[in-house]
């Protein structure tokens, strides 16, 4: 296991720099605290932790969906808290790919429309058909799937489509949250191999969150959420 070293200031070689972050849910007394943490560009990191340890909260903060009350989050030299909420949404659309554990796709849209939606919010005007065909081949999905609605797909197919959508804008950062929880062991291994292969070809930095330790084998870099963040009272250091 390799623990990433704390870095004192945002560096241009880092994909993620977190400094003195405090985030408090309105309905919760304790705060989510992350003092300093950084992740080099292009690194694939396995982030593990028990339920409730703050994995999803960290991803919400990194994606700009949740705003910390204090501290800075810098992604590829862009400090998120200097951006307006609209700019943060735009940044997320262009530079971050996200895959959830269950609710990845919009069920009433076709596969193509789901993927195009990501391209639309990133304000890309290019035709993505060729890109889609290449991705379908690499994810071992048939072309006919493009016109199917999500509700017609198996769980495994849905997760592969979710990866396709997350990668369509060639994101600098991939945030993956428990994507294999609904898959059996064989499907899980196949899925992981495809994910690693696809993300390597896009040279994206990846943070893969899971509570399943068996998935560590696919990553060189491992990290426990509790190594970098914790729930506690504001003002106390990690």
């Amino acid at each position: 296991m390799q623990l990433t070293t704390p870095s004192p200031s945002p560096s241009s070689s880092n994909a993620v720099d977190v400094a003195d972050v405090v985030y408090r849910y309105p309905s919760r007394q304790s705060a989510f605290l992350c003092d300093r943490w950084s992740l080099p560009k292009g690194q694939h990191t396995f982030l593990h932790g028990n339920s409730g340890s703050g994995k999803s909260t960290l991803l919400s903060l990194l994606s700009g969906i949740a705003q910390p009350q204090h501290g800075t989050i810098t992604l590829n030299n862009t400090q998120l808290n200097t951006l307006t909420p609209k700019q943060q949404d735009s940044y997320r659309a262009r530079h971050i790919g996200i895959v959830f554990q269950q609710f990845n796709l919009i069920p009433y849209l076709t596969v193509r429309q789901n993927v195009e939606l990501a391209s639309y919010f990133a304000k890309r005007s290019v035709d993505i058909t060729d890109q889609l065909l290449v991705m379908l081949a690499s994810l071992q999905l048939p072309e006919a799937i493009l016109s199917k609605t999500v509700s017609q797909l198996s769980v495994g197919q849905q997760q592969r489509v979710a990866i396709m959508r997350a990668l369509i804008n060639s994101p600098q950062l991939l945030l993956i949250d428990e994507p294999t929880s609904a898959l059996d062991a064989n499907a899980r291994d196949g899925f992981m191999q495809m994910l690693m292969s696809a993300s390597q070809s896009f040279e994206s930095t990846m943070i893969f969150v899971s509570h399943d330790p068996s998935l560590r084998q696919f990553f060189k870099h491992h990290l426990a959420v509790t190594d970098i963040c914790r729930w506690g009272e504001e003002g106390l250091s990690c």
Partner: peptide, 15 residues
């Protein structure tokens, strides 16, 4: 709720 969450992660603003 989940559909809105998906749209948000794709970059859709609350507006």
């Amino acid at each position: 709720r989940l559909e809105i969450a998906v749209l948000r992660t794709l970059g859709a603003s609350p507006a």
